[in-house]
């Protein structure tokens, strides 16, 4: 059994609106997975099932073999850290450092351990300069890194990032890449929702595509991006380089710039 396991999960909101239908997905320890798909497809709802914020209406979700239905969200969240799409939904302390320390104090860790974890989370997210500021006085893209730091500090084995690339500039994207590499080296699973197709092709080997409340494809980035039906249905696009290769009628399933450069150097 995978570390995170969704088995035929359907989720309906209390008003009856069905947001996820019959999801089955297994994610292993140390795996890195991108979730892509159209707005309103149910991506955020699906990842909230993984950290217990949402409990299945039908089917089951298992985290390390524990059924989320039998546990509180607080219990699950010590295994699965979820960084909200909108940092303003997550951040509530008046000072960046306090925000990052908040959960650690709730977990009653000693001061030394709190200091170590805050230091590491701050270093990984590059927010050193903002520690003593009010989170609402810093730019949105930095606020996103504050919300990431607060979750990293909990040091959960599984981490979910909900659209971390939104509004990030080149250095922000680089910082996210480095961060994911470090987490993977530590054996952590990272699940990322994103609309940035270059970010997906550059960083993820496994991609889950969602459309209309369901998972419609699960496979390598190359397989997903070159499956015309999946791309169309999930309202995604190939990365720019993939689009170019496709327009040129190249059959090599290219998604990376390096692949196209190599082909052009060697053949043309």
């Amino acid at each position: 059994m995978g570390a995170i396991e969704l088995k035929n999960v359907t989720f309906a909101y209390p008003n009856g609106f069905i947001a996820n239908e019959n999801l089955t997905l297994s994610i292993n320890s140390g795996e890195r997975v991108a979730i892509v798909g159209q707005n309103g497809a149910g991506k955020t709802t699906a990842v909230k099932l993984m950290n217990g914020l949402n409990k299945p209406t039908k089917g089951n979700v298992f985290i390390n073999g524990m059924n989320t239905k039998d546990k509180t969200t607080a219990q699950i969240s010590s295994y699965v850290g979820y960084v909200f799409q909108n940092p303003d939904d997550q951040i509530f302390n008046s000072n960046v450092k306090k925000e990052i320390e908040y959960m650690l104090r709730y977990l009653k860790l000693d001061e030394k351990e709190i200091e170590r974890r805050v230091g590491r989370a701050v270093e990984l997210t590059g927010i050193q300069d903002f520690l003593h500021m009010n989170p609402y006085d810093v730019p949105y893209s930095t606020r996103k890194f504050i919300s990431i730091a607060a979750i990293l500090a909990i040091e959960t084995p599984y981490i979910i990032l909900d659209e971390p690339t939104a509004g990030q500039d080149m250095s922000g994207i680089k910082a996210l890449t480095t961060l994911m590499n470090v987490l993977q080296d530590e054996g952590k699973s990272v699940i990322t929702i994103t609309h940035d197709m270059e970010f997906v092709s550059d960083n993820f080997s496994r991609v889950v595509a969602m459309a209309n409340k369901q998972i419609i494809a699960d496979g390598t980035a190359r397989k997903i991006f070159w499956n015309h039906d999946v791309v169309k249905q999930a309202k995604i696009k190939k990365p720019q380089i993939g689009e170019l290769a496709s327009d040129l009628g190249l059959s090599e399933d290219i998604i990376l710039r390096k692949e196209l450069v190599d082909l052009l150097i060697n053949k043309y």
């Binding site: 892509v36 509004g167 197709m197 696009k237």
Partner: peptide
């Protein structure tokens, strides 16, 4: 100001 930051690729287009 960044109208497509939260949009899927098709909606962005």
């Amino acid at each position: 100001d960044e109208p497509t930051s939260q949009l899927d690729p098709e909606s962005t287009a």
